[in-house]
């Protein structure tokens, strides 16, 4: 009985989470005439929307751009945020003030920052470049990543490091052998979020790119015209665009689990 209830709850949760996205896949398989109909479940599946994305309006470039930018920015974010979060957590650097300032950068409405950034990037020649968006995404995700990692670092008892230090290990060894394995779930989760957000960011990608660096999140929007919404191709591109993040989430999720079983800290 308990077991049945458990699976019922899990099943319901998964259904609610998955159904809308599943419906995108269903829509992607529909011909234009089937988009609006009395029975949305009965239709003849077609691959014409995917064909459209391959032959008429290719989206490879956009997918590649998104990949480059989210991966690069995430790597830079981790390089910046891991040491910073460690510093904040262990040394209370800046007495919390710098950490708070870091977090507060994301409180400023993005649209308002967009114009000054645009003018700045125009002067620097960074518009419609990969570097430009990588820098922006690094900046956007940095504060969140630092903050999240800070929390995870805080969860590792300092005494663990102290003990290791008393045992004569040097700092690098402690970081590598003790801290990093414990922080792995945190790193996995943080990486994943950074990847996903840079992947899906729209406003800045829309404003700061044209054709060279245009990302797939902008690509997904280009099926909405003034007299036609191309639901099918849009849904098809959404389906494709979700896959890389799905794979990333999948890989990271395994790390989360693996790291977590290791993370059973006996204080």
């Amino acid at each position: 009985m308990r077991k049945a209830l458990f699976w019922l709850a899990v099943g319901l949760m998964v259904f609610v989470f998955v159904f809308p996205v599943l419906w995108i896949y269903v829509t992607a398989l529909k011909a234009p005439d089937d988009i609006f109909s009395d029975n949305p479940f009965i239709f003849t599946p077609t691959l014409e929307n995917f064909d459209y994305l391959i032959n008429v309006r290719p989206a490879f470039g956009e997918l590649l751009n998104s990949m480059i930018m989210s991966v690069c920015s995430t790597i830079i974010v981790m390089l910046i945020s891991l040491p910073a979060a460690y510093s904040f957590a262990r040394f209370n650097t800046g007495n919390g003030h710098i950490l708070f300032i870091t977090i507060s950068t994301r409180m400023f409405p993005g649209v308002v920052a967009a114009i000054p950034f645009f003018l700045l990037f125009r002067t620097l020649g960074l518009l419609d470049t990969h570097l430009g968006l990588v820098l922006l995404y690094t900046y956007f995700n940095m504060s969140f990543a630092t903050f999240l990692l800070y929390g995870f670092f805080r969860e590792i008892p300092e005494s663990l490091e102290h003990a290791a230090m008393l045992d004569g290990y040097d700092r690098i060894t402690i970081l590598r052998r003790i801290v990093f394995p414990l922080i792995k779930p945190g790193v996995a989760i943080t990486t994943m979020f950074c990847l996903i957000w840079s992947w899906n960011e729209f406003l800045f990608a829309f404003l700061f790119t044209r054709r060279v660096a245009r990302t797939v999140s902008v690509g997904q929007s280009t099926f909405w015209g003034s007299v036609e919404i191309q639901w099918g191709p849009m849904a098809a591109l959404m389906c494709i665009a979700v896959l890389p993040t799905l794979i990333a989430a999948w890989i990271m999720q395994r790390h989360v689990v693996r790291g977590l079983t290791f993370g059973a800290v006996k204080g």
């Binding site: 979020f193 992947w199 999140s217 665009a241």
Partner: peptide, 10 residues
Amino acid sequence: FIPLLVSPLS
């Protein structure tokens, strides 16, 4: 994870 993965705008 799926809801987090799709572009919120689309």
